[in-house]
Design a protein around this nucleic acid. Structure first.
Lengths: 187, 187
DNA sequence: GTTATATATTCAACAAGTTTAATATACAAC
DNA sequence: GTTGTATATTAAACTTGTTGAATATATAAC
């Protein structure tokens, strides 16, 4: 249920429309959770039915009408409850689900050349992700300084550090794997 | 569709029952893909309807009857096709989906003490995973040597190296994060 | 003037994953 | 004799995630 809780967490910072949530989500949480716009709207609907949110329709003349979601007391309780029972998700934290590694595992069925190309592409993506994350990191620092909420922004930074460490690990792994495969070609 | 392709990859090594596949899956691919037993049986059924597999019912007297699945030519083609078009999955490779990081992001809503406990638990899980992977690594080496298929086992090892690198990165990250949070307590 | 982008939401169909449990046999351990 | 473990499969109900489009208005860019 992490998507619902992520949305609760964002709405706990302040009321927002689905559209704004979608953007906020993609600018922050998307590094470790992906959700399509249509899914976000659907979940908001379900969360309102659960009593975790209320919504007010706002009529606009220059732009399409919008619906502003606000977290309820029930929603805040649920958020706290979720944050206080991390045991199960720590198990989940260990479980990577990677179609990419699945391919690596079976790459013996294809040519070494093809495998090398795959690894180079992966390496490149790691670099790009690191850059993307670097920008996000700067944004967090700025935002934290502006908002003056050092406690919150500290955790945002810790989450960002995780991403950085893992892209670095990915880069190093790819380099090692490339060396191993090149040995094979050389023989 | 990675689960289906993982199953195709395993069946490409040899015919197996759903029960055996379930065990083989959990002993190898489960490090980067998780699937419930019931899901595996359901997917096998769908794959047979797709023409990627055939199955033979084997009547046993001492044990329950079983159904042995065999990959078809169509299935082999599908496996090769999947292995030859990695572009899309390299994008997926970058996308972590981690309820744990979601919690870290919002951990500012709870106490520093609680956050530290979470990080210690995570750290512990990293160590355990590394050990579990170490055993798997040994099994791979042995199996590769017995089977004599060095090419296949090389990729299995590369996949295992990935896991190891990532658990190490997780350990280091947790240590850094713990230091950051302890500073906060000390002030 | 037409194309792209931003705002703002909704929906249907489908695919994938989770939960839970039912069913049945055999062997080993205590 | 009953408890646990291994073998072996099936299935319903549910939740979550993906795909792809439809709808509508306003502004900025070319």
């Amino acid at each position: 249920m992490s998507l619902k809780h992520g949305l609760l967490g964002l709405l706990n910072y302040g009321s927002m429309t689905g559209y704004e949530l979608d953007k906020a989500f993609k600018a922050s949480l998307s590094f470790f959770w992906q959700a399509k716009t249509s899914q976000i709207y659907r979940e908001l609907d379900a969360m309102e039915r659960q009593g975790w949110l209320t919504s007010q329709r706002v009529i606009q003349s220059e732009k399409p009408n919008k619906r502003v979601y606000t977290i309820t007391e029930g929603g805040k309780e649920e958020l706290t409850k979720w944050l206080s029972s991390p045991e199960s998700d720590i198990m989940d934290a260990m479980s990577v689900r990677s179609p990419f590694l699945m391919r690596v595992f079976f790459a013996g069925e294809t040519s070494t050349k093809q495998s090398l190309e795959m690894l180079y592409a992966y390496r490149q993506k790691c670099l790009e992700s690191k850059n993307r994350l670097g920008s996000a990191y700067d944004a967090i620092s700025e935002y934290g300084a502006i908002v003056g909420d050092e406690k919150k922004s500290k955790y945002w930074q810790i989450a960002a550090l995780y991403g950085d460490a893992f892209f670095d690990a990915g880069l190093n792994w790819a380099d090692k794997a490339i060396v191993l495969l090149k040995e094979e070609l050389g023989e």
